[in-house]
């Protein structure tokens, strides 16, 4: 035999159900503030690329806006445009990487065009190299050598900051 429904249940009114959202609102407000603060204070200069992982370092220096050469384990990329495959570089004994040099020279021409028309603009040969953790030194050296040859002598390496 089934129990009869309890008295309490019988008395209970079928009232309007209302969700108490106050706690959720508090949480959202805090998250929103936190995200807004972290959003505005950081200008994005170096974009994370899922194709490669930067090495971790204790360096603190903030990155600046400058030409970016990316070296992944598959390809070499200048400012978002693929230039060549990494394998070609490794197979070639030559220190100058021809396609990279050509691409950099095109960039130099653009920069010179700007420099001619604006006296404030000074070309210092700044370039940031973003390399994958695993690339061998010879690859980095060849890219650095080629950058130097093209006139980009002010080389920085992009790394992940540890803290």
């Amino acid at each position: 035999m089934a129990f009869p429904p309890s008295k309490k249940k019988q008395k209970k009114e079928v009232g309007e159900a209302s969700l108490n959202l106050n706690a959720l609102m508090d949480m959202f407000t805090i998250i929103l503030l936190f995200l807004l603060v972290s959003f505005t204070s950081e200008g994005e200069v170096i974009t994370a690329n899922p194709k490669f992982k930067l090495p971790v370092s204790s360096a603190q220096k903030k990155p600046e806006q400058r030409l970016i050469v990316q070296i992944t384990s598959d390809e070499i990329i200048i400012d978002g445009n693929k230039v060549m495959d990494t394998k070609e570089v490794l197979n070639n004994e030559d220190y100058t990487i021809k396609p990279l040099l050509d691409a950099l020279n095109i960039n130099i021409k653009k920069v010179e065009y700007v420099a001619q028309r604006s006296s404030d603009f000074v070309f210092r040969g700044d370039v940031t190299i973003q390399g994958d953790q695993k690339i061998p030194f010879i690859l980095l050296e060849k890219v650095m050598f080629t950058c130097g040859e093209a006139g980009y002598g002010n080389i920085s390496l992009a790394v992940m900051s540890r803290d």
Binding site: S38, E42, A48, S57, A59, P63, E64, N154, A158, M160
Partner: peptide
């Protein structure tokens, strides 16, 4: 859009 991994640079001197 939030970035949690901070990047930094190391300058290389010829």
């Amino acid at each position: 859009t939030a970035v949690f991994a901070k990047t930094a640079i190391i300058d290389i001197y010829l």
